[in-house]
Each structure stands twice: as C-alpha cells, then as structure tokens.
C-alpha cells in the first residue's frame, strides 16, 4: 500500500512539473521566476526596483528579438520600429483620444503585429544581410516619419504620456512588467517547442533544405515576424507609460543595437538567454556609470570577446555548466 501511495504522489508531482514544462519552464526557470517575481517583497529600494523593471523590459525585448534572429536566422535590425509603433500607438490613443491605456497597449500590440506581418511580406524573398537591411531601412524611414508628422506624434518635442497606474510605489508597475515577461516567455516557448518552432529552426539552418522537406518558408517567416513584432509592440507600449515621455528617437538604431547585444550575449536560439543577459548586464552597466566612456568601451570589448570566444552566449555557458554538474552527480551516484 505505501508503495502505491508513493507512486500516486509521484504522478501528481510529475504532472505538475509536466504542466510547467509545457509552459516552457524548467525547475531552474521556475526558481528564477520566483526570485524575480518576489523582488518587490524583499527589495525595498525603489531605485533598484526600477532598474529591475528596466532590465525586465529590455530582457523581454531581447527574448522577442531572439525569436527571429535565433530561430529563422534573420536579424531584425529595425526592431526599434516596433518598440516605437507600440509606444506611439498607446500614447496617441491615450493622450489625443482619451482611450484607456490598457486598450491602448492592446492596440499597440495589434498594430505592431500588423506592421510585423507587413515587414514579413517585404522581406519574404530576402535572406541574410539583405533582410536585415530591409528591416533597418523601414525603421529609419519610420524614424523620419515620426519626427516630421508633427500633427500626429508631436514631433521631436516629445509627447508626455500618463502612467498606467498612479502610484508612488513600483510594486504595481513591477508586476505588470513581470506579467508581460511571463506572457512573452510562455508564448515564445510554446511556439518554439511546437512543430512551428521546428520548422523555424529548419528554415534558419537551411532554407532550401527546409523547402525540400515540404516547409513553406514564406508562411513561417510571416508567422515569426508577426509574433515577434507584436510582442515588441506590447513591450513598447509599456515603455511609453513607464518612461512618461516619448520622443521619435525611440526609433533610432542604437536602441536595436542594445536589444541585439543583450540577445546575442544571452545566447541565440534559447529565448531565455536574452532575459538572463538583461537581468545581469543592465544592473552591472548601471552601476558602472561613473566610469563614463570607459564603461562603453568595456561594453564594446565584452561584445567582441563574447562573439569571438563565446558565440553561444550565456545560455550556452549555463548549459555546459549544467552538463558538467550532471556528469559529476551521475558519477557520484554510481559510486
């Protein structure tokens, strides 16, 4: 009897883990999310919470960015455009038409998705650096439009945006961002672990071979761009309310570079690598601000060294550490 009971307990335990696994969480992932999610409880310093919110935001961007660059192997060098589209959509709806910011964020999400679909159409025949340039040019063109269409965006003087919730504490805003991170993570993991994800990887490795195997690259490219850009729009919409003022500079290339660096350093094709990269790098970079230019020089050096010596990024590193630990434990278990 006791044996049977233990068996049942095991099954329930397993089904819970399975459920989490289905959502894309490993036990380590759950722990990390718990540590992150409970931050407002054990951290009282507002400035640090703010840094964490920003890090999560950049992490979420990096994850959504990785969904394109790490899977179908196209670097969306115009990713800041979707950040901008999301931000300006909710800002214009709220400040000009009085639309509820939550609906505004939804609209930002949808509009960025539509724009992403459009970008997917534009890049459908292109590959490699040409596709990247296409996305980049789109962002640059939108930058110029946002600057010059003053009637809509208020141009370079900037547009004040009211916060999502009026509160002096960051707890509420932290959990909103945390929820967005969870949504982004779960959506991306679900999709990438499904058949669609396998098709993405196949296209990313060799488009011709994938096509020969009966995968329609165009269709999957469109799906990929739409999802990745829509999520970018959602995060961008959050940014508008979080930052309090937006200017057309959101569209500028350096924003894409920042996201791209985080996602590459985090590890391509892992999804969670970008989040980890942001959570580690952003606070560190913030605390090095006193070093002025040297901080950026170190940052550039780090990017170069990472690309030369560790192109698999943090996620690759952690996977190796995990493998080593596993082997050691396995050996000791045998003894």
């Amino acid at each position: 009897m006791p044996e049977k009971q233990e068996g049942r307990a095991n099954t329930t335990k397993r089904s819970v883990t399975d459920a989490f696994k289905g959502l894309g969480f490993s036990p380590a992932g759950i722990m990390a999310m718990l540590i992150l999610g409970l931050m407002p409880v054990y951290i009282t310093d507002n400035a640090f919470l703010r840094v964490m919110i920003s890090s999560m935001m950049y992490g979420a961007f990096a994850m959504a960015f990785d969904f394109t660059s790490g899977f179908i192997n196209i670097t969306n060098f115009g990713y800041s455009a979707f950040w901008g589209i999301g931000a300006y959509t909710t800002a214009i709806l709220m400040m000009h038409y009085g639309v509820n910011p939550w609906l505004g964020m939804l609209a930002g999400f949808l509009l960025a998705g539509v724009a992403g679909f459009g970008l997917g159409l534009l890049t459908i025949r292109l590959g490699g650096i040409f596709a990247s340039c296409m996305t980049w040019f789109l962002a640059l063109a939108l930058f110029a439009v946002a600057t010059n269409w003053v009637g809509l965006t208020e141009g370079s003087k900037g547009m004040s945006v009211d916060p999502l919730i009026a509160s002096d504490s960051y707890t509420g805003i932290f959990y909103i961002m945390f929820a967005i991170v969870l949504i982004v993570y779960v959506v991306l993991m679900r999709v990438s672990n499904s058949n669609i994800g396998i098709a993405f990887r196949a296209i990313g490795q060799d488009t011709d071979a994938a096509q020969a195997a009966g995968i329609d690259p165009a269709r999957y490219k469109l799906i990929n761009f739409t999802i990745s850009c829509a999520l970018g729009g959602l995060i961008g919409a959050f940014y508008a309310h979080f930052s309090g003022i937006i200017i057309p500079k959101i569209f500028q290339t350096s924003n894409t570079v920042e996201i791209m660096a985080l996602s590459y350093i985090g590890g391509r094709g892992s999804i969670w690598g970008g989040l980890l990269g942001a959570m580690l790098l952003l606070p560190v970079m913030d605390y090095m601000k006193g070093m002025m230019e040297w901080r950026l020089i170190l940052y550039g050096l780090f990017m170069i060294l990472a690309m030369i010596f560790y192109p698999a990024g943090l996620s690759g590193l952690i996977n190796i550490v995990r493998g080593h630990i596993g082997r050691i434990l396995h050996l000791s278990g045998k003894d």
Binding site: I297, F309, P311
Partner: peptide, 29 residues
C-alpha cells in the same frame, strides 16, 4: 583573425555584432 579561427557557423551574423562592438569602442576611445 581570431574570429575566423573559431567561427564557421553564423560568421556573417557574428561579424555584425562584432563590428558594432568595434564601433562603440572606437567612438568612445
């Protein structure tokens, strides 16, 4: 040169970020 020794796969995309790193370093230096 070191990158060429190590990286075969994804060369183009690696150089992409690499040159961005060079650009950041040179501007600030």
């Amino acid at each position: 040169v070191p990158l060429r020794v190590r990286s075969k796969k994804n060369w183009l995309m690696n150089t992409f970020l690499l040159t961005l790193g060079i650009s950041i370093i040179m501007q600030n230096l």
